[in-house]
């Protein structure tokens, strides 16, 4: 078995493009679910409208890269407001139903034959990332270092995406940290606990929930940008419901309502996934595992990750960074 490759890809997964884009999406989801208690099951749609906003602006309309980013941001804000107006005055579960349906509507519009000329159908759009890579300060080549015999190297394009991505993660984490320490964040957390109590203390619950929905959506939409730029393409099915569910998994794994919970959760999630995949692929190749073939390994890793997460939730339900006392209070209510 090629342990060098396994270790190298696993460590790289801890900081890779997937980790970055899911962590950004999960930071947004943390604002929604972790702090405000909004059950948003349509986070993938925020990433989708951003990715497509950028892609369509640049490829179809021929406008510059920065205009594309602006269009994507505006699209995310509009989506948040459209989702929020009818649902935020209702009970929490309605938001869940409406967001999951809206996310599917968005995805199906992107892949529809009707709009193929705009969104590119199920193939999606490509060729919109040149403006981004034109800003790349890294000259062509490989970057990174060798950890003993293990090479940890990224190409100059990936390096640029990762640099921007991790700066964004740091920025958003800092913003969330500042906000959640402030009286504004206190109102959000109070809404999570009991809306009526917050109303009785003179705060407009609707307004705060809308602000939280927009903030989390705007943060999450940067995950869509990173996806589009990192893979130099967008496809509709990437922004399906399972993307949202992975982000929920990461959030709970890392610890909801913790500033670094979603980031840590995303790193662990991808490290485990890549580790399982590589170990099993190598083991099957070396004939150590005989009851699987290489095609089945892909599915098997999801089963093992799922099992791992179940065990984690049983033995550490508050997540890795969570506070055990909070879970105890929850159970007693």
């Amino acid at each position: 078995m090629d342990w060098i490759t396994i270790i190298s890809t696993t460590i790289k997964a801890a900081v890779g493009v997937e980790t970055v884009l899911y962590a950004i999406g999960a930071i947004g989801l943390n604002v929604h679910f972790g702090y405000t208690g909004l059950l948003n099951f349509g986070q993938a749609a925020f990433m989708g409208v951003a990715g497509y906003g950028l892609a369509v602006t640049v490829t179809v309309m021929g406008l510059p890269f920065w205009v594309g980013i602006f269009v994507g941001l505006v699209a995310a804000v509009i989506l948040a407001i459209l989702l929020g107006i009818p649902t935020l005055k209702l009970r929490a579960d309605y938001l869940a139903i409406v967001t999951i349906a809206a996310a599917e509507i968005v995805r199906l519009i992107f892949r529809s034959v009707q709009f193929k000329s705009v969104f590119g159908g199920s193939d999606g759009q490509r060729g919109f990332s040149d403006g981004f890579y034109a800003l790349n300060p890294y000259p062509e080549g490989e970057y990174g270092f060798n950890l003993g015999p293990v090479p940890l190297l990224f190409g100059h394009r990936t390096m640029w995406v990762l640099t921007v991505g991790w700066i964004l993660i740091a920025l958003f984490s800092f913003v969330v940290y500042l906000l959640m320490k402030s009286p504004w964040g206190r109102v959000l957390k109070a809404i999570r606990e009991d809306e009526d109590a917050v109303r009785s203390l003179g705060k407009s619950v609707f307004s705060y929930k809308m602000q939280a929905l927009v903030l989390g959506g705007v943060i999450g939409c940067f995950g869509g940008f990173i996806y589009g730029l990192g893979y130099a393409s967008v496809q509709p099915d990437v922004f399906g419901t399972e993307t949202t569910f992975y982000m929920y998994t990461m959030l709970i794994l890392g610890g909801a309502a913790r500033v670094l919970g979603p980031v840590l959760g995303s790193m662990i999630f991808w490290v485990l996934l890549v580790l399982f995949y590589n170990v099993m692929t190598e083991a099957v190749g070396a004939g150590l595992i005989t009851f699987l073939d290489t095609n089945q390994v892909g599915a098997m890793r999801w089963i093992l990750v799922g099992l791992g997460l179940i065990l984690l939730l049983i033995f550490r339900p508050q997540g890795i960074l969570g506070d055990k006392r909070e879970i105890a209070i929850d159970a007693r209510r």
Binding site: K189, E193, D194, A197, V198, S200, I329, D330
Partner: peptide, 13 residues
């Protein structure tokens, strides 16, 4: 300002 019959303490604050 009102209070509630079933108290609404904000538990995790």
């Amino acid at each position: 300002v009102r209070t509630f019959q079933l108290t609404k303490a904000l538990s995790r604050l």
